[in-house]
Amino acid sequence: MNEKKLSLVEAVNLALHRAMQEDDNVVVLGEDVGVNGGVFRATLGLREQFGLKRVIDTPLAETALGGLAVGMAAQGLKPVVEIQFMGFIYAAMDHLVSHAARLRNRTRGRLSCPMVLRTPMGAGIRAPEHHSESTEAMFAQIPGVRVVIPSSPARAYGLLLAAIDDPDPVIFLEPTRLYRMNPQALPDDGRRLPLDSCFTLREGHDLTLISWGASVHETLQAATRLAERGVEAEVIDVACVKPLDLDTLEASVRKTGRCVIIHEAPKSCAVGAEIAASLYERAWLDLQAPIQRVTAPDIPPPLYRLEQLYIPGVEDILAACETVLEYA
């Protein structure tokens, strides 16, 4: 039997159905997640199958959502909270930083906080600035929180199931631009993917391209263009930006000697800077060229007419690759 091809948002929906079937403690809450199935329909059908007590429509109050999730998680439930857009998540930061991330440490392991906070991230869908942000580095700075960003339907499915299983809080960021791009065959087999591992999407020996989220799409296109010229790039999807799988990244850079890091977040103090610094510490003597970063500029996401200038494109990646390849 042919497996149905699913988009990334459909894979998220499938994972939520699977998790709620497997564990009665999993509850979904957020603005419009029930009757409407979420702003992008990621929770479509959950209310009809699992009822009002497990799929909860809430007021427009992200601060309350953060507090509710911490309280539910501390008392044995596994809340999966949907924030409609990443730009609305900051109202919940106090609960995330002050309580969710610290609960295990504060109680010396007596309590944990098995909550997942899902939100769309990134530009590319012609939305206003607060709907188009990529501020994953803010959450990667918080000790006690995992930050996961899938870049394909299969990884969205497997990583979300693993995130829901995790006994500690997980920020699960879903690239909006990829929601309905590149559907792929996906079995509903319940297979979890490791949360703290990178995924090597393409083997190569000439240079390493490191990316995550929506920028993986352009990175793979750039690798294909390079291959047409006889340059074999290794492409790595970081997937979990906190904690980082530095062992995989180091091994690749030691092999290729050259590295370009691509992400949609602004350049300053981003996760790409942390990766670059760590690779300099670990693999300095194996580098044959300075590490390059291809990022969005340090400005708020612009209105849609300028989005394609804001998002790092294939030509930007190729230019950075030319820079590292020019070193003898």
Rank of each mutant, 00 (worst) to 15 (best):
L161A: 05
E62S: 03
Y157W: 03
D168R: 13
D298L: 10
S268E: 12
G122F: 07
P183L: 03
I299C: 14
D94Q: 12
L186W: 09
C240P: 01
Y157H: 02
M86F: 14
P183W: 12
Q75S: 13
V97S: 01
V231L: 10
M115A: 14
T107N: 02
S152F: 11
V39W: 01
R102M: 13
E326W: 08
T63Q: 14
A276N: 06
R191A: 15
L65V: 07
L201W: 00
N13I: 03
E322H: 11
Q84I: 08
A73D: 11
R177K: 14
R102N: 11
V27N: 04
M72L: 15
A154Q: 08
L249Y: 01
F40L: 04
R258N: 08
C198E: 04
Y179R: 10
R293G: 00
V148A: 00
P266R: 04
C321W: 00
F40I: 10
V271C: 09
K242W: 13
A91Y: 10
H131S: 09
L178V: 05
D57R: 01
I236N: 08
A289I: 06
Y310Q: 06
Q288W: 03
N13C: 07
V116P: 10
G51V: 03
S151T: 03
G257T: 00
L96G: 04
R108K: 12
H205V: 12
D166Y: 15
L226V: 12
S152N: 09
E326S: 15
P301T: 11
F40K: 06
A296F: 01
T224H: 13
A233W: 03
A74Q: 03
A223T: 07
Q141T: 05
N25L: 02
P183R: 11
G158Y: 04
V27P: 11
I125L: 15
Y90L: 14
L173R: 10
Q288E: 15
I291V: 15
L220V: 11
I89V: 14
L65I: 09
V55C: 08
G190P: 08
Y280S: 12
V253M: 02
L279Q: 10
A11P: 00
E129F: 10
F50W: 07
L285F: 11
A15R: 12
R118L: 12
S197N: 12
R180I: 08
E315L: 05
L160R: 09
G66Y: 00
T43K: 08
L65T: 04
T58E: 06
T323K: 14
F172A: 05
A15L: 13
S7P: 00
D286K: 13
V39L: 06
I164S: 01
Y280R: 13
V12T: 12
L279V: 14
E264D: 12
L201N: 08
T58I: 07
T58Y: 05
G66L: 03
A101Q: 04
E22S: 13
E129V: 04
T248R: 10
A214V: 04
V148N: 01
R254E: 14
D57K: 02
F50S: 02
C113K: 02
G313T: 03
Q49P: 00
D247I: 12
A319V: 09
V170A: 06
L220S: 00
T256K: 09
L309V: 08
V324S: 06
A277E: 04
T248P: 03
L46P: 11
P169R: 10
P79T: 02
L29C: 07
L29Q: 01
L246C: 09
